[in-house]
Design a protein around this nucleic acid. Structure first.
Lengths: 132, 132
DNA sequence: TTCCTTGCAAATCGTTTGCATAATG
DNA sequence: CATTATGCAAACGATTTGCAAGGAA
């Protein structure tokens, strides 16, 4: 049986991961987080990075982004906003646009289940990839 | 060097896969396709299923859906429409709703790159999972 | 001391690929 | 005949997990 309430204990590694993520606005992958955090703590393991990213996402301190490129990206900015992913270089960029309000109601109108939320992202070619 | 234009040759396996997909409106995964097609052709391999699903998606005869659950789903209905994925049982359901026109313009307004398209899906709990 | 967290490595899962053979045009 | 497609199995990349040891409350 899976007893207790899994009280969260403090951990240096988790702090470093969260702190690193907050310095970046390019939505790094787990591996990028690993590479970078390892420069401060060479002993940290990839498994720990994954575990903490998952934990942080579960408790809502960060956002996990699945943008269809097969790799998870992570974002310390948990405010609702939209992303663009470049089909060529894979970079992820924040979009400045108002929230798509009403989209849920729109979807829920003729639907019998219950809709919790939606995921929307845009794809195409970023400026840097166009200009070369 | 990669010479020719890769002329498409007919294949029984591809036909079966496409035919099977057209009978289903629940957006099966590659593995589900494999399981089912295998009942008609026990010799077909999973690799062939993957190759053909990828090929069919590339030439636009089917749609590949990445709905954030880590598995690709396939849809023979290539008309633009939206999907709902149940967070509990994972089932994928078509949503009856008008297209989100203007959403691209909306996103492109303050963005420097070029936007080709967008991906939107909804999640929550489906009727069957609510009722139990 | 209790229980969560870590590091390490092995395992898992979905998907892709190399290769020799079979099928298509 | 030239070339694409197949079956098989091995390879892959991203992520997860079991376990013994370390660290926080």
């Amino acid at each position: 049986m899976k007893g207790g309430a899994d009280i969260l204990k403090h951990s240096k590694q988790r702090d470093m991961i969260k702190a690193f993520l907050m310095t970046r606005k390019d939505h790094p992958t787990a591996d990028t987080v690993y590479m970078n955090v390892r420069q401060l703590n060479p002993n940290i393991s990839l498994g720990t990075v994954y575990r903490n990213l998952t934990l942080l996402a579960d408790i809502g301190e960060i956002q996990r982004l699945r943008l269809g490129d097969g790799v998870d990206h992570f974002d310390a900015d948990i405010s609702p906003h939209y992303h663009f992913i470049c089909s060529k270089c894979g970079s992820v960029i924040d979009l400045e646009m108002e929230e798509l309000t009403g989209i849920i109601d729109n979807a829920a109108a003729r639907f019998k289940g219950h809709i919790d939320g939606h995921m929307t992202y845009f794809y195409g070619t970023c400026v840097d990839c166009i200009e070369e």
